[in-house]
Structures are given as C-alpha cells and as structure tokens.
Design a protein around this nucleic acid. Structure first.
Length: 278
DNA sequence: AATGTCTCCAACCGCCCGCAC
DNA sequence: TGTGCGGGCGGTTGGAGACAT
C-alpha cells in the first residue's frame, strides 16, 4: 500500500524528468507578495502531490519561488482550516498563558490554537503585547511586565470573556483554590472557555498548559498568601496566582514590593489600555 | 487634498537540527 | 564519522492601508 510519503516521493521523482523541472527556469526567483495565479498553482500542486519536499515543489510546480517561500505560503495562507480574522478573547488569554510558560515558542503555542499559525501569534505578540510593554517603558521579558500580564491583563480578559458570554452563576466556574479564603476576589470564567482551553491542550505530549487541572474544569487562579510573587516554579506546578487581586495595582501600592515601575501614571495607563484596547 | 507617520501582517532571512548517504 | 540537504523555527523587514496633521 502506498503511503502519502511514498506517493509524494514517486510523484516528485516522476517530475524530475519533466520538461517543466529544468534548473534554468530557476534563474529568476520571485520574491514579495504572491499572486492569485501563484496561489492557484501551489494549491493545485499540493492537493495532487501532498505537502513536503518543498524544494521539489518549487522546482516542479512551475513556480519561480524558493521551497521555503512555497512552504510558508502554504502553511500560513493556503492550507485548509487556516483561521483568519481577529484573535478572539479566548485565544488572547491562551496565548498569554502559554507564552508565560513557553516563551517565544510560537509554533508550540500555535499547536494549541487550531487554525492559527505561529506567524500570526508572533505578530499578535509583537503588535499588541510588545507595544504595550514599550508604552509602559519596561522590558517585555521583565518580571514586572509579566506580572502585569498575569495580574491585570489576564484577569481582565477573563472578565471580558464572562461578560461577552453572559454567563450566570449557574454556568460559570469559579476559579479558586480549595484553600482560598478570599472568596470575594475569585475570578469567574465560562466553562465553554475552559472546554476550549481543554481541547487546545489535548495531545500535548510532555507538558500541559498551566491553565488546566487534571479534571480540566477547576483552574487554580488563586494562590495562597503571598501569591503575588509569580515564579516559573508556580507555573510549572500548574498553578496560576492571579491574586492577590487588583489591589496590588492600585495607585500608590507599588507592586511586589520591588520597583518603581508601577507609578500611578503607569498603572492608570495600563488599566486604560486594557479597558479600551484589548 | 497632500503629505507624513503609524500600525499591522505577509514574507523573507539566517540559524539550527535531523536525516540520508 | 563527516557532509550536504531539506525543513522548521524565531527574528526581522518592507509594503500597504489607516490615521493624523
């Protein structure tokens, strides 16, 4: 029985004797935006021969493109099931979470967002998150900014998700640790979002996104005392500590007892950004 | 209306890794 | 074991459109 792989190899091998496969045709490599005709050619070629062996695809399809260019165009644009359009609130939340865990592992993050490409996520991060860090005049990789994401931005996203889904107390899940005493500061989220997060994370081999517990329903956003000091260790444990709530970001309180980044002006600015822009 | 500036994102680049030989 | 090639990944760039002046 012929596998997809052997089919591709045989097809491309056949192509090797084709008149359209001459190296002289590669003399002028095209760059820049793809035309409709090029998209059509590539789509047809891949639908017949399958993905992979992109240099051969470039040679044999008649496209005056590099293999890398063909691969990129296919993966980021032409491939079926590519999701286009705005990143949803749920997706934003997941990106922030996964980035806090994995850093700039865009392809790994993209695996958890069906239909989204690493390029798209990378662009989102650069245009939205890095921009915000720049406006706050802090490094995007600094602890201060990461704290801002975890304690302000992500809870804010969850609030907006709740608001947009119109959940009631019956169809929401309260995100509290079992030992959390401050019930008034628990974060609520719609189970649908959790299910989406859960489905995103299925199939991950070694590590699970930190948003999930074993049951995929309870989500420990609330740490114990002193939980405002985020650490990679706590993330590794699968525990997010979004508390001790927004008080830490109120003007004059500073944050984490550390620096002077969280000036009144910065905090006000951040909250305005999150309220208006996200 | 014309020009300058900013934002977003598609595409490119260079590095690295795995695999075949 | 060394080498070359293909493919994947993250970083960066450039152009088009939106917006401001």
């Amino acid at each position: 029985m012929e596998t997809a792989y052997t089919h591709v190899m045989r097809s491309l091998s056949d192509c090797g004797s084709s008149a359209t496969c001459g190296s002289e045709e590669q003399a002028a490599i095209r760059k820049g935006s793809w035309t409709e005709d090029e998209d059509f050619l590539l789509t047809n070629f891949v639908s017949i021969h399958g993905e992979g062996h992109w240099n051969s695809v470039a040679r044999c399809s008649g496209l005056k493109r590099t293999g890398k260019s063909c691969r990129l165009r296919w993966l980021n644009y032409l491939r079926p099931n590519v999701r286009r359009g705005n990143i949803t609130l749920q997706e934003q939340l997941l990106i922030l979470e996964l980035h806090s865990r994995w850093g700039n592992r865009w392809s790994k993050i993209a695996e958890q967002l069906p239909g989204r490409t690493d390029n798209e996520i990378k662009n989102y991060w650069r245009t939205r998150v890095v921009k915000l860090a720049r406006q706050l005049k802090c490094d995007v990789n600094s602890k201060q900014f990461r704290d801002a994401l975890r304690f302000v931005w992500m809870p804010r996203l969850m609030e907006r998700i709740n608001a947009s889904t119109g959940g009631s107390s019956n169809d929401q899940t309260t995100f509290c640790s079992n030992t959390q005493a401050h019930s008034d500061s628990c974060v609520m989220a719609n189970p649908q979002m959790l299910l989406e997060v859960s489905s995103y994370s299925s199939g991950v081999e070694n590590v699970q996104p930190p948003s999930l517990s074993e049951s995929s329903v309870s989500y420990n956003l609330m740490g114990g005392a002193g939980s405002n000091n985020w650490s990679p260790d706590s993330a590794e444990m699968g525990q997010f500590n979004y508390s001790d709530n927004m008080q830490a970001f109120e003007p004059g309180n500073g944050f984490g007892g550390v620096d002077n980044l969280w000036t009144d002006e910065n905090i006000w600015f951040l909250q305005q950004q999150l309220a208006d822009d996200i």
